[in-house]
């Protein structure tokens, strides 16, 4: 069986996921309020408690909004050892990715503006195949920079050995 990757992501990633799911939550609840408002004038359902719709949506989504970030924090882990990047992600569904340094084509360090606010970064490791590529989210900015530098350094060393 697979063991857990050694490192957790930054604790601030919980805030990041919370912000992201809250944005989504506000969006959907806002949408349901609009739908309820629009439906209230519709004769076939006249007299039904239409305003229940946003409340039901809120009640259904709220546990997810709170649980998802915590759950993700427990699942998202990564490790770089033996020249292989090993990362786990997801929450309800999970994904394990193995990318050997010798096959890496590019390493990107990206920051969205939530991430920037929280001093977090995402490391994207690309190979010639989408199925052999990995994205590690929610890393502390300095950790991400270090990982990207290590990967680039090790990739160069391996290449020099090969030639």
């Amino acid at each position: 069986m697979l063991r857990d990757p050694a490192n957790q992501v930054s604790r601030r990633a919980i805030t990041l996921w919370l912000l992201e799911s809250l944005t989504w939550f506000v969006f959907v609840v806002g949408g349901s309020i609009l739908v309820a408002y629009w439906l209230s004038g519709w004769s076939p359902i006249d007299g039904w408690p239409v305003w229940l719709l946003p409340i039901v949506v809120t009640l259904l989504m709220l546990p997810g909004v709170i649980v998802e970030p915590l759950w993700r924090f427990a699942v998202h882990r990564w490790e770089f050892s033996d020249d292989v990047v090993y990362a786990r992600s997801g929450w309800l569904s999970r994904e394990w990715v193995f990318v050997p340094v010798s096959r890496i084509q590019t390493v990107d360090k990206a920051q969205g503006w939530f991430e920037r606010l929280l001093r977090l970064a995402t490391v994207e490791i690309r190979t010639a195949s989408h199925a052999g590529s990995s994205t590690i989210k929610g890393l502390d900015f300095t950790v991400a920079a270090q990982l990207a530098a290590d990967l680039a350094h090790r990739a160069r060393e391996l290449r020099d050995d090969a030639t």
């Binding site: 697979l2 309800l92 569904s93 999970r94 994904e95 394990w96 990715v97 193995f98 990318v99 050997p100 096959r103 190979t127 010639a128 195949s129 199925a131 052999g132 590529s133 990995s134």
Partner: peptide, 14 residues
């Protein structure tokens, strides 16, 4: 030709 692996497990697969 293999450049990496992705293993996926959905909630139901789990």
């Amino acid at each position: 030709a293999v450049v990496g692996w992705t293993i996926r497990q959905t909630w139901f697969q789990r």
